[in-house]
């Protein structure tokens, strides 16, 4: 099995505090959607932060295409081809939508290519063209999430990591978020998704990973994870997959 990203026995935490991840491991295959589920405090968001360089990896390794990302800053990890959209969407509220999109391509040096890609994004997500001169902070939650996700596509990264993209959104808007994720995979982008709504996340994923107490407990094809009785009982609150 080809591995695009290999996280192995990672130990990480915030500052000098106790470790949140205690040996988490995950293999990411190219072109697939991987959904990480687990109870609150399992270390799901922490794992994404450790991969993207926001948190120091104390032990273990994060190998991306054969290169260890351990010790790299977030801007360096981004340049390797891994984008991260955190829970709070990470927009610049006083910048316009167009300026936010430009920031998405900040690491690109060719301005003409950047503007062309922004035009392409606006074509695929018309709401961003309609709102291009509006400050991002004045848009609705769903529009902000669209902007945050679409912005990552400007760099054409290999992996996009999404931390609870459906958080705080109305059910109808949540489906739009997963539709954008589908667009990403159609473009060949690998998605690493952390989702509190485990049922919804696994339904849209190819591979499921169950994390608890900072360790990987179980992983497998998303459909198997979804129907596994232990997992349904423990982490899906007894919800039955449709």
């Amino acid at each position: 099995m080809t591995k695009l990203l290999e996280v192995k026995d990672v130990v990480a935490g915030y500052g000098d505090g106790p470790a949140i991840l205690n040996g988490a491991s995950i293999d990411v295959q190219p072109g697939k959607v991987h959904c990480i589920i687990g109870p609150n405090g399992a270390g799901k968001s922490t794992l994404l932060k450790a991969i993207c360089g926001m948190l120091k990896v104390r032990q273990g390794s994060v190998m991306f295409k054969g290169q260890n990302l351990k010790g790299k800053r977030p801007d360096q990890v981004l340049r390797e081809g891994i984008c991260f959209v955190p829970q709070e969407r990470a927009l610049f509220p006083k910048m316009t939508v167009r300026e936010n999109l430009r920031m998405g391509g900040f690491s690109m040096t060719d301005k003409a290519t950047l503007e062309k890609r922004i035009d392409e994004i606006e074509e695929r997500f018309p709401i961003l063209r309609e709102r291009r001169d509006q400050h991002a902070g004045t848009m609705s939650g769903g529009q902000q999430q669209t902007l945050a996700m679409a912005r990552t596509m400007i760099l054409r990264p290999e992996i996009v990591m999404l931390d609870e993209p459906s958080l705080g959104l109305a059910p109808k808007i949540v489906q739009e978020v997963f539709d954008i994720m589908k667009v990403m995979t159609e473009d060949g982008i690998t998605v690493l998704l952390v989702e509190q709504n485990a049922l919804m996340g696994l339904k849209h994923a190819d591979w499921g990973v169950v994390l608890d107490l900072g360790r990987t407990l179980f992983e497998g094809p998303a459909k198997e994870v979804l129907t596994d009785p232990r997992i349904q009982e423990l982490y899906l609150g007894g919800q039955k997959a449709a």
Partner: peptide
């Protein structure tokens, strides 16, 4: 742009490639 972005959201700026 990098300065304005860092002023508004330091973490987000870093995630988008700003040193």
């Amino acid at each position: 742009y990098a300065i304005r972005a860092t002023t508004q959201n330091r973490e987000a700026a870093e995630l988008l490639g700003v040193n």
